[in-house]
Write a protein that binds this DNA or RNA. Structure first.
Lengths: 170, 170
DNA sequence: ATTTAATTGACAGTATACTGACAATATGGC
DNA sequence: GCCATATTGTCAGTATACTGTCAATTAAAT
């Protein structure tokens, strides 16, 4: 005969779900970043954008979005804020009137090099509670998992594709 | 003599940062949840709130926030949306005019029991790419890490404290 | 009991995220 | 060259998150 007992719902339906744990860790990661970097007025997303513009001067917003796997719509606002803080400039591309190319300003390069130690400290702090060997294991598995799930996100990482048009034949 | 070479910034400053990886996994987790559960019109946060109200009928918003470690301000809007969908009701507490107690409606209980298999499928899918042993390892380390970093988040998990006032002496 | 503290829900402001749409512009097929 | 298609940046709408504030209310201090 069928089992008609309703499955009892417990908080384990939340606490043991990997999605819940990833959400918690993301919140913790942001909190630690903000705390360590509060002197620099940069968010984690803004930091990632700055790094990418630094390593790919003249990148445009769409390619930037692909290189860090952030949503293109969201990135518009991020870029505006970085521009308002005068950490980057936008220049129209001469050969394509739709495109605006992104470059670091001197202030942007300065803040990026200044913030690095604090970013590193924040990244170290969030893994600190684990034993060193466990940190390595977690980081390796996490890197694998993100990579293997790349296509599942709305904006998959496309670092190679995005670079094809930059600094080469064109 | 001092080393004046500027540290070359590479994309590793982003790609290997645990904070970046947690952000990516969180986005992937949400995308998979939404995809698997699109028939139910529930977000991951709304699901967690529903589960908690189901296991703690009569909980108030502040304690709900502590039990799932979500921001209290944010939760106000979440509760409003759940109420608009008629999955929960809010009743004023007789002994404290500030408090509004939360209860599942029949529709809320139904959607919760209906959505469970899809939630489980989404949770399984995000770990699927890993070998079974690696899934266990990752989940164990992640659970540890969230727990050990509990105080670092703005809204630490306070499941026990939050329960003290419910269904007991009062 | 009256002043003081803390709590609760609400709100305003900022910052990610995603969906879907749009105009301007480029590019391809023909 | 023209037309269908694709790309780029932008915008409106919704949903988390966090900061800080506030009025109403309750609890604590004395």
């Amino acid at each position: 005969m069928p089992n008609n007992k309703p499955t009892p719902v417990t908080m384990d339906a939340v606490y043991t779900a990997p999605g819940y744990l990833f959400r918690r860790m993301q919140q913790i990661a942001v909190a630690l970043f903000i705390e360590e970097c509060k002197a620099f007025d940069l968010t984690p997303v803004q930091y990632a954008a700055l790094v990418t513009i630094s390593t790919h001067p003249g990148i445009d917003a769409t390619r930037l979005s692909a290189v860090i796997a952030f949503d293109r719509s969201t990135l518009g606002n991020v870029i505006e804020r970085l521009q308002a803080k005068e950490f980057i400039v936008r220049k129209p591309a001469p050969e394509d009137k739709r495109v605006k190319l992104l470059y670091l300003t001197k202030a942007g390069a300065a803040v990026l090099s200044d913030i690095m130690p604090s970013v590193d400290k924040a990244q170290a702090r969030m893994l600190q509670p684990l034993k060193p060997a466990d940190r390595k294991t977690l980081l390796a598995l996490l890197t694998q998992l993100v990579d293997l799930n790349n296509e599942a996100s709305r904006v998959p990482l496309r670092a190679e594709d995005a670079l094809e048009h930059l600094g080469r034949s064109g």
